[in-house]
């Protein structure tokens, strides 16, 4: 009855929950359609005349903005709505095991969605000779980005039994994490604030830290950023869950 056994059991149930309902299939189809549309049509994949997946990865922060909270919004609100949270937390498991098990399940699901974009990778290798190291780095960054949004969704999901509220809250928070480092916004900020301040604001943004991965630079600081966002959001999830019971 180790911790890992409990995490795995909770993870398996959660992941099963995606596939026994239509959520998984609807999500996967929409995700793949949208990535294809943005990469090839909006991103001008063919007109670029270069063998890279820049036009693929560059849309991920925006695409995930709506799709990841849609996956994460049910994590805890559903448990509260059904009353199963009481059941789960009176089992011999710690709240942390439940939080991590649920988070890993949905992250694994997003990893699956991301893995299913492999035809894009095949296409670009078919047409030219891209640097597959850069592509791998892009995938790693994209997965970390998805994990960060997901941890935030887990947090907002713990706040309410209403999935719509949970969805909107996490979209807003994730949008802030994008905009703080989005070039049009930083260009605007620089007119009012000192460059140092703009840099500090931008350092909170996922854009700043995702950028390196897209260029094939896997910087430890960027890993640390995404790990801290995930760690912080999951920690907040645990605080919210505890405080709800404390009365």
């Amino acid at each position: 009855m180790s911790a890992w056994h409990n995490i795995k059991t909770i993870m398996k149930r959660e992941l099963g929950g995606y596939f026994t309902s239509p959520i998984a299939y609807v999500f996967l189809i929409i995700f793949l359609l949208l990535t294809g549309f943005f990469t090839f049509t909006i991103g001008n994949f063919f007109e670029r005349g270069e063998a890279s997946l820049v036009s693929f990865f560059t849309w991920h922060p925006w695409l995930y903005l709506f799709l990841v909270p849609a996956v994460g919004m049910r994590l805890w609100s559903e448990e509260r709505r059904l009353g199963t949270m009481e059941l789960l937390l009176t089992m011999p498991v710690t709240p942390w095991q439940a939080i991590i098990g649920k988070f890993l399940a949905s992250w694994l699901f997003l990893a699956l969605a991301l893995a299913l974009t492999f035809p894009v990778w095949i296409t670009v290798n078919w047409l030219g000779a891209p640097d597959n190291g850069i592509i791998l780095s892009g995938y790693v960054g994209s997965l970390l980005l998805a994990g960060s949004y997901l941890a935030i969704s887990s947090m907002t999901s713990a706040m309410t039994r209403n999935q719509v509220i949970s969805f909107i809250l996490s979209v807003v928070i994730c949008l802030f994490l994008i905009l703080a480092g989005y070039t049009p916004v930083t260009d605007l900020l620089i007119k009012f604030a000192k460059p140092v301040v703009v840099d500090i604001v931008a350092s909170f943004s996922v854009m700043t830290h995702f950028e390196g991965f897209q260029r094939g630079v896997m910087d430890l600081r960027d890993f640390a950023f995404f790990a801290s966002v995930i760690g912080f959001a999951l920690f907040t999830t645990s605080v919210i869950i505890r405080s709800q019971r404390a009365g």
């Binding site: 149930r13 929950g17 026994t20 059904l82 009353g83 199963t84 009481e86 059941l87 009176t90």
Partner: peptide, 14 residues
């Protein structure tokens, strides 16, 4: 302990 909560909750899709 075995526990039966008041509303007898269960995971709807299982």
């Amino acid at each position: 302990v075995g526990y039966l909560p008041e509303s007898a909750p269960g995971y709807a899709d299982m």
